[in-house]
Simulated scan of single mutants.
Amino acid sequence: MYSQQQHDEGGTGVSASAQWGSVWVMELRGELDLAFIDRVERATAQVLRLFPGPLVYDLQHLNFADSLLVNHLLATRRQRPVGLIGTNRYVDRMLEVTGTAAVLPTFASPEAAEAGLTRAR
């Protein structure tokens, strides 16, 4: 768990957000669709204003996401390196089908994401 900032208490959206070494990790939770993507967008905008490094999205507690999440990740990637941890078969398939797997790398842990994203800078 990333404990610096709590955005949502167990609901859908960003459940935790904090710096992890030289990356910022945002834990997404619940079913992320049109009703809740704005929570993620606001939290990301706040992090982009405060933190100059790469962003890592932890998706292990995400039950559902659609193309809105992919669009958000790609928009964020235009500003900073972005990595994913905790993906599942559904998310991996969505990245494959949309052709974004090559530009949104997945990692096994925050440590691996930090190593991969900071090396790429």
Score class of each variant (00 low, 15 high):
Tyr2Ile: 13
Tyr2Ala: 15
Asp8Trp: 15
Gly11Ser: 07
Val14Lys: 13
Ser15Gln: 14
Ser15Asn: 12
Ser15Ile: 12
Ala16Lys: 07
Ala16Tyr: 05
Ala18Phe: 00
Gln19Ser: 13
Ser22Cys: 13
Val23Pro: 00
Trp24Ser: 02
Met26Trp: 02
Glu27Gln: 15
Asp33Cys: 01
Asp33Pro: 03
Asp38Ile: 01
Asp38Lys: 04
Arg39Ile: 08
Val40Ala: 07
Val40Gly: 02
Val40Met: 05
Arg42Cys: 03
Ala43Lys: 08
Ala43Val: 10
Thr44Ala: 02
Thr44Leu: 04
Ala45His: 02
Val47Ile: 07
Leu50Asp: 11
Pro52Ser: 09
Pro52His: 05
Pro54Asp: 05
Tyr57Asn: 01
Leu59Pro: 02
Leu59Ile: 08
Gln60Thr: 06
Leu62Met: 06
Leu62Gln: 01
Leu62Asn: 00
Asn63Tyr: 13
Asn63Pro: 10
Asp66Met: 00
Leu69Asp: 00
His72Pro: 05
Leu73Ala: 10
Leu74Met: 15
Leu74Glu: 09
Arg77Ala: 14
Pro81Leu: 13
Val82Lys: 11
Ile85Thr: 06
Arg89Tyr: 06
Val91Gln: 01
Arg93Phe: 05
Leu95Pro: 01
Val97Cys: 04
Thr98Gln: 06
Thr98Lys: 14
Ala102Asp: 12
Thr106Trp: 09
Thr106Leu: 07
Ala108Leu: 10
Pro110Cys: 14
Pro110Met: 15
Ala112Pro: 08
Ala113Trp: 04
Ala115Gln: 11
Thr118Val: 14
Arg119Ala: 14
Ala120Trp: 15
